[in-house]
Amino acid sequence: MLNIENLHVRVEEKEVLKGLNLHIKAGEVHAIMGPNGSGKSTLSKVIAGHPEYTVTSGSITYDVNFRPKNILDMQPDERARNGLFLAFQYPIEIPGIPNLEFLRAAFNAVCKHQGVDPMEHKAFDAFVREKAKLLEIDSSFLDRELNVDLSGGEKKRNEILQMAVLNPRLALLDETDSGLDVDSLRIVSEGVNKLKTDDNAIVMITHYHRILNYIKPDFVHVLADGRIVRSGDVSLALEIEERGYDWLLN
């Protein structure tokens, strides 16, 4: 579904990713771990198409209509319409845009892309409220301005609500677990698990082993200094929990 080959990425003058390879198939859950500054968030933003990052060499292909397509030529919104989703580490606050209106605009953009009529306001309202219930989000939340005055945990839940509404094929969760208390972590993880099918894939970027107790990864990768230095199964995450990263860096 997603193939990254020898990816090199610069931010301003600094090379952040230095020859990264990653292969993800439908039905898989991957966890990417690594020390601070190793390039984890850069990877997720490059896949989503953030304009601040420049790919200097390598490729990212993503299956669109069962065919691999070079997504580096696609705008972020086009990537999203084709089923890519990034749950932000720091969701952006946008005063003046009501949450519900934002969700509707996003959902309708995908409908339009798929040649489906947009859902009527009332039906969409019910649809979103159902999804909100899944994440134990109070429905008053939907009438508020996008992410404005939400706690860190509420913002993360709101990200997963957006994921639930858009039902992506490939979801990148960038430190969705950070800043969540135990209950929120459980709710968010259960929400993600309910969205998981054999046809989609999830990539979790995390510092901590904690979330992996809730969302079970098939593969764990360690990203350090712009490259994946070790891949394994969930036992790798346990080992990191015990030993830290140092043994992998030398």
């Binding site: 198409g49 999203a80 946008i94 953009a109 858009l166």
Partner: peptide
């Protein structure tokens, strides 16, 4: 704001 634009675009909304 570039970050706000990217956030909306990352949710399938055209530029």
């Amino acid at each position: 704001d570039e970050q706000e634009l990217f956030y909306l675009q990352s949710r399938a909304i055209s530029l």
